[in-house]
Design a protein around this nucleic acid. Structure first.
Length: 435
RNA sequence: GUGGCCGUAGAUCAGUUGGUAGAUCACCUGAUUGUGGUUCAGGUUGUCGCGGGUUCGAGUCCCGUCGGUCACCCCA
């Protein structure tokens, strides 16, 4: 009778492991992002993954898909809580809670980390996904708006992402948004029967979102819809024209897209999105999205400061980035021969590590052949061979795996010898071996 | 969330009209008493995603389910 097989456990749907070999690309991406935002004066803020549910309901808005059907919400000891679906709400909450506006006139904040939305997973869309984002509170723009868009364009360029498209739009302030909503509903209502089911439903709920539809049935109504840019008030128009003039002067490429809208309620005035076109991205081609949310701090009980921000999807950036796989830190490999050598090998390994060298000691033993094979698998340049005869004489063998050359030297010279091999150029491959 | 397609060794895949599982790579061993990347010889590896059903018999057919993927949806 075979023992019953234990039930195998799996990662939760839409939540992925990031394994060694892949995680190096994440590090590379995060390093570039951090460097770019650092040079623009942003400072990192870390907020909790779990927030009170009303924070997101009030900021993102009821009637949005994120709030209505995608949040991981639960009640813990009678308190409604939600695992954050995005970063802006938490940053604004923390900004208000710690009264940052009293400490500095403008706050430039950067965050990075996992977000959670219960969507159906697909390529470039997971339920636990990762975003990096920036928020600027206290600057009304449009100078900061232009700087932010320019920073993002430069960021993707540094990441090696080709063919990014920057779309900008203005939703206007609160009055404009409401006015446009009425105009749009008046346009869509007579066409209701020609629209997709989703769009028919959205006319009442969130008509701006109809403009975002990719459904073929909706395209005609979208194309003939009035432009929001035609209903901007004077202040909105001045702001948007200012932004465009600055982007023109910076030489930052962009395209005005009057049908660009977002799924989150808090946006007002400047709105932008960066799209990629790599085949790896598929339909999930929105790399980065953001905009101005001037009214939000006040709505959450804070000071009436203007604000703008963006978030970029890290999974999607990774898909859009060229697959330049940098070799992981190839270790120096210590090959001990025989039980007596293991204790010595551990000491030798410690010496190399103290000198800052990544070192793996094959302390489980095995044949010389097996250990050197593993050195190849690691991509090691150097192997240190240590057996009874070396121990008796107080020496080590330092082998250059690229040139096959091997030198015997006293342990005291080990570190400098290893460094020497690592620093030496890899000779052109030789044909044939010695006698 | 809706619909389509897919799910066989660690990886990529083959598997005929249902008859009881294969290739390549990888891995391990050997050709050398303590010297690797090539070569040669040999070897290991499977809950055929999972659960039911039809059948004498299911990797092959049916249903369900889970996972992935594409479009919609959503959005970063």
């Amino acid at each position: 009778m075979a023992a019953p097989r234990p039930q195998q456990l799996h990662a939760v749907k839409g939540m992925n492991d990031i394994l060694p070999g892949e995680v190096e690309r994440w590090h590379a991406l995060e390093a570039v992002v951090r460097d770019v935002v650092r040079t623009h004066g942003y400072r990192e803020i870390r907020t909790p993954l779990i927030e009170p549910t009303p924070l997101f309901v009030r900021s993102i808005g009821e009637g949005t898909d994120v709030v209505d059907k995608e949040m991981y919400s639960f009640v813990f000891h009678d308190e409604p809580l939600t695992v954050r679906p995005e970063g802006t709400a938490s940053v604004v909450r923390a900004y208000i809670e710690h009264a940052l506006h009293t400490k500095e006139p403008v706050s430039r904040l950067f965050y990075e980390g996992p977000m959670f939305r219960g969507e159906r997973p697909a390529r470039g869309r997971t339920r636990q996904f990762h975003q990096a984002g920036c928020e600027v509170l206290g600057d009304p723009g449009p100078g900061i708006d232009a700087e932010m868009i320019d920073m993002i364009v430069g960021l993707y360029r540094r990441l090696g992402v080709k063919d990014v498209e920057v779309l900008v739009n203005s939703l206007g302030g609160k009055g404009t948004k409401a006015r446009y909503r009425d105009v749009l509903v008046a346009h869509l209502e007579p066409l209701r029967s020609t629209l997709s089911d989703d769009s028919q439903r959205r006319i009442g709920m969130n008509p701006l979102r109809v403009l975002d539809s990719k459904h073929p049935k909706d395209q005609e109504a979208i194309a003939s819809a009035p432009s929001i840019l035609d209903v901007l008030d004077d202040e909105d128009k001045k702001h948007f024209d200012g932004l465009r003039a600055l982007l023109d002067q910076l030489g930052t490429p962009y395209k005005v897209e009057p049908r660009l809208v977002r799924g989150l309620d808090y946006y007002a005035r400047t709105l932008f999105e960066v799209r990629g076109h790599g085949g790896e991205l598929g339909a999930q081609n929105a790399l980065c999205g953001g905009g101005r949310y001037d009214g939000l701090p006040e709505e959450l009980g804070g000071p009436p400061v203007p604000a703008i921000g963006f978030a970029m999807g890290l999974e999607r950036a990774l898909l859009a980035m060229p697959d330049t796989r940098t070799n992981a830190d190839a270790p120096v490999l210590i090959a001990p021969l025989g039980d007596r050598a293991i204790a010595r090998a551990l000491v030798v390994a410690r010496t190399l590590r103290d000198a800052g060298l990544t070192t793996i000691c094959e302390s489980r033993g095995g044949t010389m052949k097996a250990m050197l094979r593993r050195a190849n698998a690691f991509g090691s340049r150097v192997a240190v061979v240590l057996g009874d005869s070396e121990i008796d004489r107080g020496v080590v063998q330092v082998k250059d795996l690229a040139s096959h050359a091997q030198q015997e030297l006293p342990e005291s010279e080990l570190v400098s010898a290893v460094r020497g091999v690592l620093a030496s150029p890899v000779a052109a491959p030789k044909t044939g071996e010695g006698p």
